[in-house]
Nucleic acid binder design. Structure first.
Length: 325
RNA sequence: ACUCUGGUUUUGUCU
């Protein structure tokens, strides 16, 4: 059973759903257990096939906490809150992942009050329970609550991880709270690249470009996302020339910009009133094998408009090969 | 002691 499931999981995790299905078909019935069901429910969820998840789940009698949580998650991903809750309510016992899955079902679908009520009922909250609340508050702009829950988590004796830190660091950036951002940064012990990226964004929003740059430099393996953050940080702080220069350095480092790189940079240029830099960045989009997208035109028009070139902005929107919306 | 057959939370994105 373990052997079959291992292979099944390997197929499922690498996105080979068809191979997983045929393996399941050739798998002796008496070897199919709750693990088998959970793997398949999850595989179908990842492929967006909720009906298949449901079919496997309901037709199978081997279920445990893991299977139920996987199915709650499956329903939640597709907005089927009622079905998710039904599974949650009908299971006799909940482990913390089961609670968290139901909590995530509420937060993902915007049912924040229900989420809050459920959160309070979780007997033993773990770091994921807290993260779900903190991330949700941070993403919905309630930064004060994010920080409040971050403190409460500590009082509850649960240690923050990088997911927690990322969410509260983002909250600090959004509030331009440099002191708190620094304080929380000092609590970080093992940052990963995601957190490093958030720290760069936070320091940039707090106008501490030098701190942002230091963090960037100290991270050994920069990817396109990290470079994009740094270049747009300079643009965000009105440093057009340096952002153009860094953009060159990025390519010397072997990193190719993509569509998002240009959207991120151009939008910061527009906000900071860097018309010249915006124009230069826009002009070199084709040099990288990319076609300027609607978003790029909108950003450039925005930059023109904010610099007082209203007519040129609307002219650009008229001439671009897209329909404005 | 930790050690992976399965479930829950987090990266760059303008208007």
């Amino acid at each position: 059973s373990v052997t079959w499931n291992s292979l099944l999981a390997a197929y499922a995790q690498t996105g080979h759903l068809h191979k997983a299905e045929s393996l399941l078909d050739s798998m002796p019935g008496h070897l199919r257990d709750a693990v088998t069901t959970t793997i398949m429910v999850n595989a179908y969820t990842q492929a967006g096939k909720i009906q298949e998840s449901r079919r496997i789940y309901t037709s199978c009698h081997n279920k445990d906490d893991f299977t139920s949580s996987a199915m709650i998650h499956a329903y939640a991903q597709h907005g089927h809150l009622h079905e998710a809750k039904q599974i949650f309510d009908t299971s006799p016992h909940h482990d913390v992942v089961s609670w968290n899955s139901m909590l995530g079902a509420y937060t993902k679908n915007g049912h924040f009050h229900e989420a809050f009520l459920l959160f309070q009922k979780i007997p033993t909250k773990d770091v994921v329970s807290w993260n779900l609340m903190i991330v949700t508050y941070s993403q919905t702009g309630d930064f004060a609550s994010a920080i409040r829950f971050f403190r409460a988590m500590d009082l509850d004796g649960v240690h923050p991880d990088n997911v927690t830190f990322l969410a509260v660091i983002e909250a600090c950036g959004s509030q331009a709270d440099l002191l708190l951002g620094r304080a929380i940064h000092s609590e970080v012990s093992h940052p990963d690249i995601l957190l490093v990226n958030a720290l760069i964004g936070m320091y940039s929003k707090c106008s501490s470009l030098e701190a942002a740059r230091e963090i960037f430099v100290s991270w050994p393996c920069k990817d396109v996302v990290l470079w994009t953050s740094l270049v747009s940080s300079y643009a965000e702080n009105g440093r057009g020339q340096e952002s153009l220069h860094l953009f060159q350095s990025m390519q010397l480092d072997g990193i190719n910009p993509d569509q998002v790189t240009f959207i991120a940079i151009l939008s910061k240029c527009a906000q900071a009133g860097l018309l010249h830099a915006a124009h230069t960045f826009f002009s070199c989009i084709p040099d990288h094998g990319l076609v300027p997208a609607l978003d790029h035109y909108v950003c450039l028009a925005d930059a023109l408009g904010r610099s007082g070139w209203i007519e040129q902005a609307s002219e650009l929107l008229d001439l671009m090969p897209y329909e404005p919306d």
